[in-house]
Design a protein around this nucleic acid. Structure first.
Length: 788
DNA sequence: GAGTTTGAAACT
DNA sequence: CAGTTTCAAACTC
């Protein structure tokens, strides 16, 4: 019935919800709608405001503003009544879903073949007592999710891991494989165009918001929202956020999807969307998982107004299996950051008297400087915090539409598959939304004192969950990581045996992330459970070497020229922070950190017989300004003897440049690094808050200053010196935003040179900003791109 | 998968 | 600061 109309509407008025078509659409949906639209709008506003107070009460507010999606989204919502109606609908659905949480859990437990996931959770308790204690149920729910995803045919799930496989699968799946494939292509092209054009997130968001309206199938549900408590509001935001994110990624897809749910082809379309919005979905899932963990009971409060159909819809839309690995990665990264930031705050106590008691309160300061990881809830954390490389990757994603798209596709495809299959039946998905909302509130509301503990618990649980998910198929995970080498977030896995993962020997630790299941480490202390130990050790190491956790490779992204920026003067260069000391590898193997990081050797390097394909320390580095040139013929300029090597070099570098992440075949780190673009403009100001947030991921590292004169001579200690307080509290993070950039910028790049250019261009060109220095996190993990 | 090589990190 | 040892990744077989 509605389908045809809906479609028309969607297609015609996709861009603007304000258009009458939207209203028509709503009206079509349900007779109640007219009332709804009104109510909803108002309600929404009222609700939003109501919720806001809590949020804003805390200093977080600022952070929120900075925060990306959520904040913006919320704003958009407020401004747009139609939007609200839809949101309301979603919220309701969420609530309905939550209502059926128990069922979902059971379903999840169902043996669709994910018995492993279930078993893992059980295992977790022993491993992570905290998480288990706090919210065993929640964990179950989380675990259930994966199951839900897994419900899809085994082949599908597996394919999900491998993007390449996934795509085909998706196509096959959809009745109109070719049609969808085309649609995907279009979407991709669009996204790329956007990035190329310098699409702003905001614009994307707005578009997304528009789309959102269409996407929501049931206008009737909106009314329910009004009735629902404030909690829902928060949920709404989260849900909306997720939607927005999705929308951003897939405007076109949404157009199609607009009606999909009920239309016969709805599922296929849905899948398509999900694939595109994979990233957003993952975030959502994370949030949900967290919510479920932290507030399993919250669902009870929800009134079950949503019908089964609604739930089913919700599931189809939202329940997108996220690659477990991906999830885990983010979480661990985020968690780690959060912990660090938290810890720093506590330690620094000076900022706020009772840090430990009210961690969140302190957060604001941190958030402001860093990224508001907490503000946005888990999902937001992931993105904003960006702490880990992974996060950076996300940020990068925004910048690099291509990478993002790829990641999204891969990730989403995985997710979608499950959904597409009837498997989504499991209500488990339903739970998430609401939970998410709850979480959001929690995060948003700083007033809550107990938050810290809860957060910790959540973190632990999340960590556990991530591990659990990962455990499902370690092999698969590895595969993903490998394949995905692209996804930086894919985080690293270590194999430490004696360091307990508390030394820089440990890649995970060095990267600022907790070890996760895929790690083969022994006696590992780099886990949320041992947060204190980790932080203490970290601090100790930092005291020894402030730059210890700073990105080893510092990049200056040429790709984005800022008008008027000094960047023009400064050569784009990326180089290893400390330089390498290779003697036998000729800087042609991954033993060489410079090579591993995809950067050329610089003056700071003490290597012997340098043949670094990315740039030799001899002279190639000088060429650095023009990375491209160097890349093309780094060695040509230099000694002829090197030519042979150079030949090899060029090839590699080129690859990297083109696909930074891929450039270095085996190392995922590059991806991460690439992804990690920090927003430091020459002036050290982040182009956009969003970027900053993202950049924060590197935050850990970013905080550090560039020691090496070669690269950044400029300003010695910009970060720490300038902002001691900041440093203390959030040296890493803060520095990330401020110091690094400043340092880099300030440091007259010109003065020092940098060697070879890196492939940064291709890697992460920030669309808008001119040149940006990007700190590459060492970690090779796959990042956003993901990969997974 | 086991063993070797390598160079960073840690230690003295 | 230099030299040595330890460590884990990278690499090879």
């Amino acid at each position: 019935m509605d389908t045809p109309e809906r479609k028309q509407i969607a297609t015609t008025s996709v861009s603007k919800f304000e258009d009458s078509p939207v209203f028509n659409y709503i009206n079509n949906l349900s007779p109640i709608q007219p009332v709804k639209s009104i109510h909803t709008t108002q309600t929404f506003n009222s609700l939003s405001f109501a919720s806001l107070p809590s949020v804003f009460t805390s200093p977080h507010v600022s952070s929120y503003k900075e925060s990306r999606f959520l904040r913006r989204h919320s704003v958009a919502d407020l401004s747009k009544p139609d939007f609200a109606s839809e949101n309301g609908n979603k919220v309701d659905t969420n609530g309905g879903v939550t209502g059926s949480v128990s069922q979902l859990q059971e379903n999840s437990s169902a043996p669709d073949g994910n018995s492993d996931s279930l078993s893992n959770p059980t295992k977790l308790p022993s491993v992570h007592p905290l998480s288990t204690k706090e919210e065993p149920q929640a964990m179950k729910s989380d675990s259930a999710r994966p199951d839900c995803d897994q419900k899809l045919p085994d082949s599908v799930t597996e394919s999900g891991e491998d993007p390449a496989l996934i795509e085909p699968y998706v196509h096959n799946k959809s009745g109109n494989g070719s049609a969808e494939a085309e649609a995907n292509k279009q979407v991709v092209s669009l996204t790329e165009e956007r990035e190329a054009t310098g699409y702003d997130w905001e614009s994307l968001i707005t578009e997304g918001s528009d789309l959102l309206i269409f996407s929501s199938p049931n206008g009737s549900e909106a009314i329910r929202l009004v009735q629902k408590p404030l909690d829902l509001v928060t949920g709404f935001t989260s849900s909306t956020l997720s939607q927005i994110m999705e929308n951003d990624n897939t405007n076109l897809s949404k157009m199609r999807i607009a009606d999909p749910i009920e239309s016969s082809g709805g599922q296929q379309e849905i899948e398509f969307l999900s694939s595109q919005a994979g990233e957003a979905r993952e975030l959502k899932d994370m949030d949900r998982a967290i919510d479920s963990l932290s507030f399993p009971n919250s669902s009870n409060s929800m009134s079950r107004e949503i019908t089964d159909d609604e739930v089913a819809r919700y599931i189809t839309d939202d329940c997108k299996p996220v690659s477990n690995l991906y999830r885990g990665m983010r979480r661990r990264c985020l968690d780690f950051e959060a912990a660090v930031s938290r810890r720093k705050n506590l330690e620094d106590g000076s900022t706020s008297g009772s840090v430990s008691t009210h961690p969140e309160e302190k957060m604001p300061s941190v958030d402001k400087q860093l990224v508001p990881y907490k503000t946005g809830g888990v999902a937001s954390r992931c993105i904003l915090t960006g702490i880990g490389l992974h996060l950076n990757a996300l940020a990068t994603a925004s910048k690099d539409a291509k990478t993002l798209n790829q990641e999204k596709f891969s990730s989403e495809k995985q997710l979608n598959l499950p959904n597409s299959s009837a498997s989504c039946h499991s209500p488990s998905t339903g739970l998430d939304p609401r939970l998410t909302s709850v979480v959001t509130e929690r995060d948003m509301d700083p007033s809550e004192n107990g938050v810290h503990n809860e957060e910790d618990a959540v973190r632990a649980s999340a960590y556990v969950l991530a591990e659990d998910f990962n455990q499902n198929s370690p092999k698969k995970k590895r595969r993903r990581l490998e394949h995905a080498g692209e996804t930086e977030s894919s985080c690293k896995r270590c194999n430490c045996k004696k360091s307990k993962c508390l030394k820089l020997y440990c890649e995970c630790f060095a990267a600022g992330v907790y070890c996760i299941e895929p790690c083969s480490c022994q006696d590992c202390f780099n886990k949320p459970i041992h947060e204190d130990t980790v932080l203490a050790t970290r601090k100790q190491i930092e005291s020894r070497n402030p730059l210890a956790f700073a990105p080893k490779v510092i990049r200056n992204s040429d790709s984005l020229p800022e008008p008027g920026d000094e960047s023009n003067k400064t050569p784009a260069s990326a180089r290893h922070k400390r330089g390498c000391n290779c003697k036998k590898s000729s800087c042609l193997k991954k033993y060489c950190e410079c090579y591993q990081g995809g950067v050329g050797c610089s003056i700071s390097c003490r290597c012997e017989g340098c043949k670094n394909a990315f740039g030799r320390k001899d002279g190639s580095s000088l060429l650095g300004l023009e990375t491209e040139q160097e890349e093309e013929e780094p060695e040509t300029n230099q000694a002829s003897a090197m030519d042979d090597k150079a030949l090899h070099g060029p090839e590699i570098p080129n690859n990297e440049e083109q696909n930074p992440g891929s450039a270095i075949p085996s190392t995922p780190l590059q991806h991460c690094r690439q992804l990690v673009p920090l927003p430091f403009s020459s002036r050290s100001k982040p182009l956009r808050s969003s970027f900053l947030n993202v950049g924060s991921s590197s935050g850990f590292y970013t905080g550090n200053k560039l020691e090496k004169p070669n690269i950044l001579q400029s300003q010695p200690d910009p970060g720490k010196n300038t902002l001691p307080g900041m440093e203390d509290e959030m040296p890493d993070i803060l520095c990330g935003n401020c110091s690094p950039g400043a340092g880099v910028k300030t440091g007259s790049p010109n003065s020092k040179r940098i060697s070879p250019p890196q492939s940064d261009f291709g890697l992460s060109p920030l669309p808008r900003t001119g040149r940006k220095l990007i700190l590459q996190s060492i970690p090779s993990f796959p990042s956003l791109t993901p990969q997974h």
